[in-house]
Simulated assay, not measured.
Amino acid sequence: MSDLSSIPVQKQDWPGTTADLRPAPDHGETSYAGRDRLTGKRALVTGGDSGIGRATAIAFAKEGADVAIAYLPQERVDAQETQRHVEATGRRCVLCPTDQRTQQANKELVRKVVSEFGGLDILVNNAGFQMAHQELEDFPDDQIERTFATNVYATFWLTKAAAPHLEPGSSVINTTSIQAFEPSTPLLDYAATKAALNNLTVNLAGELGPRGIRVNAVAPGPIWTPLIPSTMPQEKVEGFGSDTPLGRAGQPVEVATAYVYLASDEASYVSGTVLGVTGGKPVF
């Protein structure tokens, strides 16, 4: 596992690519060992091309699940790399290029996955958009619409479309953020969406619980993914994560373990909760 205690200055164009990250992130390609906790499950992971989504897809596959990954069409190269690692475990990986900012796109995404797998057991709403700006006046007029459409509306639309296909014992997991609890002003719209997702998670748990469907969230702290150098100023990238009690950023694989737990039968009585993976930053 590469050392993330001193991340150097770097910049990428949005949406960024894994190959250009320095140091290289660990998605569990060789470091994660499965224990058959998701054998025979069928999962959909949005934002599965890189970062937390890639690590989660790999971990799910190593635990015995077939995985479909949704991603923006321009992230095809990273998505194919995720597919390569998933298929190396002997599991299936279905690629689903999708811009989730419309209800219809989410309906079609579910239709494709269910058609390929014959059903769905695990839904991970992980796709997200952020772009930092130093002053309120710097935020483009349409950015808040894009951020909410990607982070909140898509989560609602996709979960709604998937719900009829989820049987008792299924699991929905949303990706929120430490930003929901410790918001940064340069990410004010992003932080607001993550707070909304915390609330949505609790309400969905109440709504779907009587059907035997569990709904939870993972709130990552500073995790080393292409999102960081492609959406933040270079001076913020240098030393990213050093302000945590553990003194470093987290690896994507270190977050993926939380998704595995929440998706597995080990969490059979866990629903409506937000699990923080933050390097020591408080999640309450």
Score class of each variant (00 low, 15 high):
residue 214 R to H: 14
residue 215 V to T: 12
residue 228 I to C: 09
residue 165 H to F: 00
residue 146 R to E: 07
residue 193 T to S: 14
residue 205 A to Q: 09
residue 208 L to A: 08
residue 223 I to Q: 05
residue 213 I to K: 02
residue 154 A to C: 13
residue 171 S to Q: 09
residue 162 A to K: 01
residue 147 T to P: 03
residue 225 T to L: 10
residue 183 P to Y: 06
residue 199 N to F: 13
residue 190 Y to V: 07
residue 197 L to P: 06
residue 200 L to C: 08
residue 209 G to W: 12
residue 210 P to Y: 03
residue 154 A to L: 08
residue 203 N to E: 11
residue 167 E to P: 06
residue 203 N to H: 13
residue 211 R to P: 05
residue 146 R to M: 05
residue 183 P to T: 00
residue 219 A to M: 06
residue 226 P to Q: 05
residue 226 P to C: 08
residue 186 P to K: 04
residue 167 E to H: 08
residue 203 N to A: 12
residue 203 N to C: 13
residue 205 A to T: 01
residue 171 S to A: 15
residue 180 A to Q: 03
residue 217 A to C: 11
residue 222 P to N: 08
residue 197 L to K: 03
residue 196 A to Y: 05
residue 212 G to S: 06
residue 218 V to F: 13
residue 211 R to I: 01
residue 152 V to N: 03
residue 167 E to G: 04
residue 159 T to K: 00
residue 181 F to C: 02
residue 189 D to C: 07
residue 209 G to S: 12
residue 230 S to A: 15
residue 180 A to T: 01
residue 161 A to Q: 01
residue 170 S to Q: 06
residue 169 G to C: 03
residue 222 P to C: 11
residue 196 A to W: 08
residue 204 L to Y: 14
residue 182 E to L: 15
residue 170 S to M: 04
residue 183 P to G: 05
residue 152 V to I: 12
residue 166 L to C: 11
residue 218 V to T: 05
residue 190 Y to I: 07
residue 217 A to Q: 03
residue 206 G to W: 07
residue 202 V to D: 06
residue 223 I to M: 05
residue 162 A to H: 06
residue 209 G to L: 13
residue 210 P to H: 04
residue 220 P to D: 13
residue 195 A to G: 15
residue 215 V to P: 10
residue 166 L to T: 02
residue 153 Y to F: 15
residue 186 P to Q: 02
residue 194 K to A: 13
residue 151 N to W: 05
residue 205 A to S: 15
residue 152 V to C: 12
residue 159 T to W: 00
residue 169 G to E: 03
residue 207 E to G: 11
residue 224 W to V: 11
residue 152 V to F: 14
residue 200 L to D: 00
residue 184 S to R: 12
residue 184 S to N: 10
residue 198 N to T: 13
residue 210 P to G: 11
residue 205 A to F: 07
residue 165 H to T: 00
residue 163 A to T: 02
residue 225 T to I: 09
residue 188 L to A: 09
residue 145 E to Q: 06
residue 205 A to H: 08
residue 211 R to K: 14
residue 216 N to G: 11
residue 177 S to V: 11
residue 229 P to W: 08
residue 166 L to F: 05
residue 222 P to L: 07
residue 212 G to D: 06
residue 179 Q to S: 15
residue 205 A to N: 08
residue 189 D to R: 00
residue 180 A to K: 01
residue 175 T to V: 15
residue 212 G to Q: 02
residue 178 I to S: 09
residue 196 A to L: 11
residue 203 N to P: 06
residue 164 P to W: 04
residue 149 A to Y: 01
residue 171 S to K: 04
residue 216 N to D: 14
residue 187 L to S: 01
residue 152 V to Y: 13
residue 216 N to I: 04
residue 165 H to V: 00
residue 194 K to Q: 13
residue 227 L to D: 10
residue 216 N to Q: 08
